[in-house]
């Protein structure tokens, strides 16, 4: 009984909501990875590095503009755009010539980019921890059902669904998205009817990178920005994408929720080994539904 009352105390519940809002960031990053893996078929290990670059860029922008709300908003715009620009260079420079290679080669190529980007970040920003303080406006806490929840986490909880709907609209309601989905299934056929698939792929890749950068910029005030934050994230993002179904935005959302919820619940129930639960959940899903929870693009 004591255990249950501990579980449902207001402290743990608000802790749970905070955990859930972090899930938003997992979702934003992994939806980008899902687009790149589902449509372009690139298992992009460098996605985590792009997320890290996004976080460091956000730090630099905020310091350049001297803090405050304006600087924070500027960081949320400039950092993802910077990462998207980097993605554009990578796509045009390398991947656009290599789409026909097998997965294994692309996995290792993106890993080599991850190594290079990791060291470039080390050269530019150094090895120390960086941190970003929230603008004063966002520092307080709101009351949700009598539970304290920091404003910033509330913002994150709202941002997640907005991004999900936006992505769904882009993929399902725009011409670009429709072409991208068709090209994921049969690239040759799409180009045979006279569509320039190359640019659609470039757009998809850049959009995916933008999402990685946005995730990095959003996590910046919540964590120590450091080298190595890419490695811990990329494996989680991959598992989420596979669990949810490749190239499926709702799958990425569902996967992030399953991953995030099992993690926060797991830590509440069994603090020492809570971190094991999300991995168990992924294994369970893949054993029963090897192609992921929702339908994948291929």
């Amino acid at each position: 009984m004591e255990f249950l009352s501990h579980l449902f105390s207001s402290g743990t519940l608000s802790q749970f909501l905070v955990g859930l809002s972090r899930t938003t960031i997992l979702f934003i990053v992994s939806s980008g990875l899902s687009l790149i893996l589902g449509i372009l078929r690139i298992p992009n290990v460098a996605h985590g590095s792009l997320y890290m670059v996004g976080a460091f860029l956000a730090y630099s922008v905020i310091h350049l503009f001297g803090g405050g709300v304006a600087a924070f908003v500027a960081a949320l715009v400039i950092a993802p755009l910077g990462v998207a620009a980097l993605g554009f260079v990578l796509e045009r420079g390398f991947f656009s010539h290599l789409y026909e290679r097998e997965h294994l080669m692309l996995l290792l190529l993106t890993f080599s980019f991850a190594l290079i980007i990791g060291d470039l970040v080390k050269i530019v920003w150094g090895t120390e921890y960086r941190s970003v303080t929230l603008p004063v406006v966002l520092q307080g806490s709101a009351e949700i059902l009598g539970l304290p929840l920091p404003y910033y986490n509330l913002v994150l909880l709202l941002v997640g669904p907005v991004i999900a709907v936006f992505l769904w609209l882009v993929i399902n309601r725009t011409k670009m998205g429709k072409i991208a989905r068709a090209a994921a299934v049969d690239r040759e056929m799409v180009s045979a009817v006279g569509i320039n698939v190359g640019w659609v792929f470039a757009f998809t890749f850049v959009l995916g990178c933008f999402l990685a950068g946005l995730g990095g910029a959003l996590i910046a005030p919540m964590t120590n920005i450091s080298l190595g934050m890419d490695h811990s994230l990329i494996i989680e993002a991959f598992l989420i994408v596979i669990m949810g179904g490749l190239g499926n935005v709702w799958g990425a959302l569902l996967g992030s929720l399953v991953f995030g919820l099992t993690q926060s619940l797991g830590i509440l129930v069994w603090p020492k080994f809570g971190i094991v639960f999300p991995y168990l959940a992924v294994v369970a899903v893949l054993v029963f539904r090897p192609r992921g929870l929702l339908s994948s693009t291929w």
């Binding site: 298992p43 997965h103 598992l239 971190i275 094991v276 991995y279 992924v282 893949l286």
Partner: peptide
């Protein structure tokens, strides 16, 4: 029973499970 990328990904998740257990 899975092939190619799905095989690899399931192996990564199982392997990470082992890693996390050892790590914790």
């Amino acid at each position: 029973r899975l092939s190619k990328l799905y095989f690899g990904m399931l192996q990564i998740s199982l392997g990470s499970l082992v890693w996390v257990t050892v790590y914790r």
